[in-house]
Amino acid sequence: MFRSSLLVALGWYVVVPAAVLVAWSGLPVAPGRDCSAMFSCLSPVEQVGLFMIFVGLPVLLGAAVVTVAVAALLARVVRWPVVTGTVSALCGVVGVAALVAAGQGFR
């Protein structure tokens, strides 16, 4: 039960960034861009890749920790792995968003 829930949560963590990557890869590149600034001439796919390296990996790690904790608690109560995995993935994303918002409040 717990493993199936984690696989569902992992599926959400793979599908959503893949959908964002597919959506951004279809964006046209503006002609006549000024490439004098650093990272100003990256394609949309390269921008997503750079964003995922610097921001996405730490967020994914934090969300994964929260997801495992929530899935461990919910797997004992809820008997459907799809519901448990989806709720735990959502709690992981919301938990990380709350931590980021709290960190911005301290600045």
Rank of each mutant, 00 (worst) to 15 (best):
A37M: 13
V8C: 06
L73S: 10
L7M: 10
P44K: 01
L21M: 02
V55A: 13
V96I: 06
V29D: 08
E46Y: 08
F106V: 14
A63M: 00
T86M: 06
G56P: 00
G105V: 07
G62F: 02
M1C: 03
R3Q: 05
G85L: 07
L74K: 02
S43R: 14
A97S: 15
V8F: 01
V82N: 01
G92N: 03
L57F: 13
L21E: 06
F54G: 14
V78D: 00
A101M: 11
G11E: 04
L21C: 04
P17A: 03
C41H: 07
T67A: 08
R33G: 12
G85P: 00
V96F: 05
V15K: 12
Y13A: 09
A75G: 10
T84S: 10
V94N: 10
A101I: 05
W12S: 01
L57A: 14
T84K: 04
I53E: 12
M52R: 05
L27A: 14
S43I: 04
V93I: 08
G103D: 11
A75Y: 02
V78E: 02
G103I: 11
R3H: 11
V82C: 04
G95F: 02
L27E: 13
V55W: 11
L57K: 08
V87L: 13
G105P: 02
V59R: 03
A102C: 07
T86K: 03
V48R: 03
S40R: 07
A37P: 01
L90S: 07
P44V: 10
S25E: 12
L7K: 01
V8Q: 08
A72C: 11
G92I: 00
V22F: 08
V93A: 03
G32N: 15
A102W: 13
F51K: 08
L42D: 04
V16H: 07
R79M: 04
L42R: 06
F106G: 00
V45H: 03
F51V: 13
F39C: 06
V70C: 01
T67R: 05
P31D: 15
P31G: 13
Q47P: 01
P17V: 08
G11A: 10
P17K: 02
G49E: 02
C41D: 09
G105F: 10
V29E: 14
M38D: 14
T84R: 05
M38R: 15
V100I: 15
V68H: 05
F51D: 06
R76W: 08
P17T: 00
F39I: 02
C35N: 12
M38V: 09
R79I: 03
V100D: 00
V16I: 15
M1L: 12
G85S: 10
P31A: 15
A63K: 00
G103A: 12
A30H: 13
G32E: 14
G56C: 09
G92V: 07
A37N: 10
A18T: 15
G95R: 07
W12V: 06
L6R: 00
F54M: 09
P31F: 11
A71D: 08
Y13L: 10
P31Q: 14
V78H: 03
R3K: 14
W80E: 13
V100W: 00
V29R: 13
V48K: 07
V82I: 14
S25Q: 13
G32P: 11
W80G: 04
A9W: 01
F39W: 13
G92R: 01
L99S: 03
F51A: 14
L27C: 08
G95M: 06
A102M: 14
G92S: 04
V29C: 07
V68S: 02
V93C: 05
